[in-house]
Every structure is written in structure tokens, then in C-alpha cells.
Design a protein around this nucleic acid. Structure first.
Lengths: 252, 252
DNA sequence: TTTCCTACTTATCGCCATATAAATAACGCA
DNA sequence: TGCGTTATTTATATGGCGATAAGTAGGAAA
């Protein structure tokens, strides 16, 4: 039986570029960056050479996928949220992680994040350094305040304290890994789980934290103070040279 | 300048097979399974067709890599360790996780585990189901006992309890991800970190756990009882048909 | 020392993936 | 309604990678 061919439709260059970019995200996060341009084109309902009208080569397309996924993932309100002293610290922290989990626990993000890490991109470390500077420092600061411990200005944040916050981050992110990388079942009510993880964190942390703050503690190694340099926010990637569309070739 | 060629050395078939297998692990865990057989052969100091004398195709070689890495990773003493009632529960649990972390936080394991997950292998889920049945259930059982809560025989283990143990597992495993996938710096003294994570876990968990055990709790959803079927232990993968070496071809 | 088995190499096939060049046709505009 | 621009397709080049076939030589045994 003959394949019914959809009537050819011309999109504006911008529309098509976005169309391809979105499709590429969905495609590559599923099969990895080894996925073939032919297969991608087929899914998009276009021919493979058309991709090369919009992106000079596959690598540029992948670059575009990174921008699509990494950009605008950061919600600047998170920082305000953690700073809002009108609410109790515990409530703020729990609320933040509930929000953050919603933003981060998606098929696309989890997989692209892993793929880019395994490929040796440094996007991951850039992104996570940002998280550390914008979030971890705040969480620790508020925890210190909550438990009557010295402020980071008085005693700089120690390695071990960061590790404790890393652990909470990890336990949330790992829910996504279990589901979208290992293909395991996870609880239906992720919100409740995250809430419990944050709560359990808040209950378990102070003992260890207080211990690590005692000058006698074995490995109290202050880190470079974070939160010092104030960057423009939001963008993990540079605003970035937009890939120039290929000029139509002269004919004849 | 002429390339100094190492004198050709003949290994016994078994030796060469292991040589290739070990090299393949190191190679594929670094570049992923998309890595080229030519490049692998170069690193091994052999020619690429020789690979095909020992493995019928690339997929079989990859299969061999899985066996090499997954097999014998499980230490049966872990279960005994957790069951040893002559030591306090907290001590046992902390000691177990210190040990487990040492076994699991390696470049090879972390990366192969991720690569196999992203490839859609079900090895990950098989392995992790084993961990759940052999470890998580024990940890929860001991915790319940420690805190005077009903035993799993009386009240089956709930979803949320498993989630709490997952969280500890995640926070340890994630240390490896940070280092070997994201390329981030991690503390020198991982042992101490793991100890603190386990401690913080033990301090933080009981409140949430007790809550989740109250019949009134929202989502007390008992899971299928684990630890029931006793499997031969140790092997995650089937003992597995050894790839038959290719018979030398008749000549002339 | 000679022989013979087989580990290993050289040479090469054939396919498939990225990428380019040339031809076609959809749509805006006159 | 016809024209020109350019989005899109068809056809194809080019190289790389998995895999095979045939020839070479190491070393154990006699």
C-alpha cells in the first residue's frame, strides 16, 4: 500500500528552526546523541538534508539542544523564596525543594543532563556550581540560623555541610534517575516523598552539622566563600552565539 | 620517524580473551558503548580484526563487559553483616554503608552502570531489585527493631520507608556521579562523608518512619513482601553462556 | 631442528551515517 | 494571476566503521 504523503508545508525559517530544535530535544534525550539525523528527520516529518539548512552540522544541532534544555530552567524566585524571612526556615526549605523537584524531575532534563555529563560536557559542573552558590549556601545559612549556630560570615561553610545538602539534592534527583534511566517504578505521590525527604533531612542534619562546626572536628575544611560574586542570574549557558542560518546558495 | 613496533606476542586464547575483556571495560566505560572497535584495538596494542576472533561481534563484546563488571560485585557478607545481632544496629548499618560505598564508588562501576541504564538494559533494575530485597529490607527491619516499631512480619514495609532508604543509597551513589560523570571535585575523605550521611539518616528517619507507620497515614501502601524467595546469591547476571570462541577457519 | 597448529596481521568488502549539490514547489507579493 | 524568493526535496558524494577472507609467523611438541 502506498504511503499517504502529507502535503508539503512551508514554515517560516524561525518556526522550522524551533520545530527542529524541539524535536531534537525529544529525540536525543530518548536515544542519546548517537542518534541518527535520518531518524530524527523522519520523526519530524521532514527530509534529512533539511536539517543542514538550519544547522551547519550535527554538533551544532546538539549544541542547540543543550541551550534549549539548560536555558530558562532556573527560576530566580527560588532564591527569593529561600530568603523570605517572613516564613519559618523549615517551611521555606521544604517548599523550595518541592518546587525544585517539580522543575527537575522530567524525562528530558534527567536524561539530557546525564548524557551531557557522560559526554564530558562541563555544562553539568557549571550548572551545579550555580546551584551550590545560589541554593546550598542559602539552605545552610538558614539552617545555621535556625539552630542557633554561627552565621557563614562568622564561620565559613565547611565541606561537610555542603555534603549534607548535596545528599538531599541527590536523593531527589535520584528519583528521576530511577524512573527515567533505570526504568524502575517510583511512588505516585512524588510530592509527598520529597516533603518527607526534606523533613528527614532537617531532622537528621543538625547533629552532624553541629559536630562538624566544632573547631576540633577532624576535617573542617572551609571552602572558598560562595555567594560572593553576583552573576546576572538565570542563564547557565552564555547568551550564546545564535547559530547563523545557512545562506541560501546561489543557483546556476 | 618510523614507529617502533613491539614484537608480536602470542598469548594463549584464554589470556587474550581476558586481556581484551579487561581492556574493553576500561575503554567502553570511558567513551561509552559507541566507542569504535578500531580505537579499542589500538589501545590494546592489537589489530582490530583480532577482536573478532574472540567475539563474534561488537554486541557480544559489550555483553562480556557487562558480565565482567556486574558479576562478583556483590559481597554476600553484607547480608550477614546486617544480620549480626551481636552489634548495635546503628553500628552495623553505618559499617555496611562504609563498605558498600567502597565497592560501588569506582569509575568503572558508576559509568558502566549509567551507560547500561541509558541504553535501556534491564541490568540496572535487576541489580537494584536485588539490593532492595537484600539490603533495604534488612535496614528497615533493623531500624524498626531499634526504634521499637512493629516488625515487618507484623506490619509490612511501606513505600515511604523504602523511599527513605533509597535516599541514603542515592546520596552515596551520587558522590560517584559527581566525580566520575560530572567531573566535580569531591571531598578527599569519602569514608567520613559516608559515615556522616548514614548517621544523619539514622537521626532523621525515625520521625518520618513512625509517621508513615501510623495507620492513619495518607499513603501507607504495603509493597509485595520481599526477602521471601531465597535466590542462590551473588550473581546478578545469569552464570551465562560463555561466548564460544570462534573456531579457526579451514584453509585452502 | 623441523613441523604444524593457531594466534595474529594485512587487505578489503559493504553498508550506513553525515553532509553537499542540484532540482522542485509552496507561498508572499505585484 | 503570474513571478520570484526560498523552503523543501531528490540524488549523491565521502568517509568511517563493523565485519570477513586470506596470508604470516610464533612457539610448543616431536
Amino acid at each position: 500500500m502506498a504511503v499517504k504523503r502529507a502535503p508539503r508545508r512551508r514554515l517560516s525559517a524561525d518556526e522550522r528552526e524551533r520545530h527542529i530544535a524541539r524535536g531534537a530535544v525529544a529525540f536525543f534525550c530518548e536515544v542519546g546523541f548517537g542518534g541518527q539525523t535520518r531518524e530524527l528527520a523522519k520523526r519530524l516529518g521532514i527530509t534529512q538534508p533539511l536539517l543542514y539548512r538550519y544547522f551547519p552540522n550535527k554538533e551544532a544541532l546538539i549544541e542547540r539542544v543543550y541551550r534549549e534544555v539548560y536555558l530558562n530552567r532556573w527560576d530566580p524566585r527560588w532564591e527569593e523564596m529561600l530568603d523570605d524571612h517572613s516564613r519559618p526556615a523549615r517551611e521555606r526549605i521544604v517548599a523550595f525543594y518541592r518546587d525544585y523537584a517539580k522543575a527537575v524531575l522530567s524525562y528530558e532534563w534527567i536524561r539530557i543532563f546525564m548524557f551531557s555529563g557522560l559526554r564530558g560536557m562541563n555544562l553539568n559542573s557549571r550548572y551545579l556550581t550555580l546551584v551550590r552558590d545560589r541554593v546550598y549556601t542559602r539552605v545552610i545559612r538558614e539552617l545555621r540560623r535556625e539552630y542557633g549556630l554561627p552565621s557563614p560570615a562568622e564561620v565559613p561553610i565547611g565541606e561537610m555541610e555542603f555534603e549534607l545538602v548535596w545528599a538531599l539534592h541527590a536523593s531527589i534527583f535520584y528519583i528521576g534517575i530511577r524512573k527515567w534511566i533505570y526504568g524502575l517504578e517510583i511512588p505516585e505521590n512524588v510530592d509527598e516523598v520529597v516533603e518527607n525527604l526534606a523533613t528527614s533531612f532537617l531532622d537528621g542534619v543538625p547533629a552532624v552539622m553541629a559536630k562538624s562546626l566544632k573547631p576540633a572536628a577532624k576535617s573542617l575544611k572551609p571552602l572558598k566563600p560562595a555567594l560572593k560574586t553576583r552573576k546576572p542570574a538565570t542563564n547557565v549557558l552564555k547568551p550564546a552565539a545564535k547559530v547563523p542560518r545557512r545562506a541560501p546558495r546561489p543557483r546556476g
